[in-house]
Amino acid sequence: MKVSFFPGCSLEGTAREYGESIEAVCKSLDIELQELSDWSCCGASSAHSTNEFLSVALPARNLSIAERKGQDLVTPCAACFSRFKAAEKALTCESKVDVGIPFQGKINILHMLEFLCREEFSEDIEKKIKRPLKNLKAVSYYGCLLVRPPRVTDTEHWEDPQALDILISRLGGESVFWPYKTECCGGSLVLTRVDIIHRLNGRLLDMAREAEADCIVTACPLCQANLDTRQEEIGDKEGVSYDIPIFYFTELMGLAFGNKGVRKWLGRHLVDPRPLLESKGLI
């Protein structure tokens, strides 16, 4: 199985362990990720906040390369996914926008979560599980752009998505209900309004704790970074102490598959998940 892969800018930096775990998991499942040649940034929030043309043309360049290659395009970042889907709609709808870059809409654009949760991989995933995530209680955090707005993302259940929950259960863990599956982490305000970031992420951490979860599972580099890197600051501000590991879903897959390198990925987190996993006998 071959697909075009668009890593996105953060996989080379803050989300390095996401990239490493994706690589290992896909290898285990015999999926060949072919990195899109000469890919460029999707423009993220900054492009659509600044210039309409940029917000379509920057993703369109990548979509056009992928369409020429003729394979479906998979991306692990919720923001990239959202910008690609929005550009796909803008370039192919009735009143389509012309940015001088050809794209017919002949390929599928998928987020990594959606891709790995395809029915065709479910048997392989079950077979690969060597160490079920027994006793691990996790809340699924989808965030905004993976699901919203549904007329862009083509998501069926945008208020109560299920893919991560099903995956956690399939890996042998316990998916715990919480009402904040698709709440916002503040994303692009990360440098400009840290106070807002603290408040939004503090609420998420508090709710995870109230749901008695051991950890939060994400599918987005921005959500993971906001939740993982700010816990000490939020705790200091509120006079409490947070210590909630924030996993990428592919890290949990790799853990259950017994992939090499798991300890290395987890060592990159600011909130170290290894003590939790050791206490559960999972590493």
Partner: peptide, 30 residues
């Protein structure tokens, strides 16, 4: 973050820079 390998020190290399610059030029007109 640096000690955990999460900060990429060297700027990325992308073969499409020229095309990207062109997109920015065109955007000015829109």
């Amino acid at each position: 973050m640096f000690l955990r390998g999460k900060l990429k020190v060297m700027p990325p290399k992308c073969g499409g820079v020229k095309e990207v610059k062109k997109i920015f030029e065109q955007a000015k007109e829109h």
